[in-house]
Simulated scan of single mutants.
Amino acid sequence: MNIQNVMVIGAGQMGAGIALVCARSGYHVYLFDTSNEAKQRGYDYIERILEKDVSKDKMSETDKNEALNRITLAHTIEEVANCDLAIEAVVENMEVKTSVFQELDKHAPSHAILASNTSSLPITEIAAETKRPEQVIGMHFMNPVPIMKLVEIIRGLETSDETYQLISEMSESLGKSTVEVRDFPGFAANRILMPMINEAVYTVFEGVASPQDVDQVMKLGMNHPMGPLQLADFIGLDTCLYIMEVLHEGFGDSKYRPCPLLRQYVKAGRLGKKVGRGFYTYD
């Protein structure tokens, strides 16, 4: 099978980023979101990034226009009937994701691969909601998608070798490097990253050090480009909490227990950069 047409479901920062790298790499993209406002914001984000690329001489004006012309704002999810691959990038909630996959399975061509950008939820469970579990796979892009080079590819229990190979090759055509990961809670990236962030929150919670000093330790002492608490603000504290809950429930191990301070911040609405306040305050 030759992947040419891709539907991205969810036009938030992740979905729009995925649509951008696909269109920039020559794929025709159908960008769908149940919210027309979100869909337009996603398209505007793509346009801004491409214009920035032109201003930095990373691409020509012609290439920018051709990439934009390869993006169609889909009116309904049924337009996946035109696609060889669907990449779901909606909210990190199993009920929402399985509902999306049921719709995709109903309307996508029989040859189409259905991929999830989930950062922690089990691919096997998502695939079980479809009649094509061998064609369901995880494609975990890193944020921000246009910059970060990694895609975690997660095989569900039934994912076929052919599906894996096609998605691996397609990811590399986007200029990404791939790693193959088994279907365990948090996969590899978040199983390593989120407990580190959670431990950084505990360090603040227990009065060991301030958020600024915790981040300085990791930036200057461990050569991390960004401290864990600043990174948590960028990811979204609600997302960090949700992934820690998935890890805690999935493994049943107390070492994954979310820090009470993280839970408190989320309940207070201090979700990070997207709302202007988390561990830090943003304009």
Rank of each mutant, 00 (worst) to 15 (best):
I9W: 03
S119Q: 07
A23N: 10
G156F: 00
S177H: 12
A16Q: 07
D44N: 15
F187E: 07
M1N: 08
C259L: 06
I3C: 00
K64A: 15
T130R: 02
V80C: 15
P228T: 05
A112K: 01
D215T: 09
S171Q: 03
S210F: 09
V217L: 11
A232H: 06
A200R: 07
V29P: 02
K97W: 07
Y43G: 05
K176M: 06
T159W: 00
E92L: 02
V54F: 12
E79G: 04
S173H: 06
C83Y: 03
F187S: 13
D283K: 10
E51S: 12
L104S: 03
R277E: 15
P211H: 14
Y256R: 04
G42E: 10
P185I: 11
L104M: 15
S120H: 10
V136H: 00
T178M: 08
G236L: 05
N223W: 13
V266C: 09
M218Y: 14
K97L: 05
T62E: 14
N117A: 07
Q40M: 06
E61D: 07
M170C: 13
D105E: 08
K267D: 13
L247C: 10
P225I: 13
I126V: 08
Q135G: 00
N223Y: 10
Y265N: 09
E95I: 03
E47S: 12
Q40H: 06
I87L: 10
V201Q: 03
L220M: 14
K255L: 11
I18R: 09
D213F: 08
M226F: 09
H111I: 14
N36Q: 14
L174N: 00
M1S: 15
V145M: 03
A209V: 15
P122E: 03
A108G: 10
G138I: 01
G252A: 08
V29C: 05
N117Q: 07
L68S: 11
I49V: 13
Y280A: 09
S35G: 14
E95S: 07
H140N: 04
I147E: 13
E180F: 05
A268I: 06
I197R: 02
M170K: 12
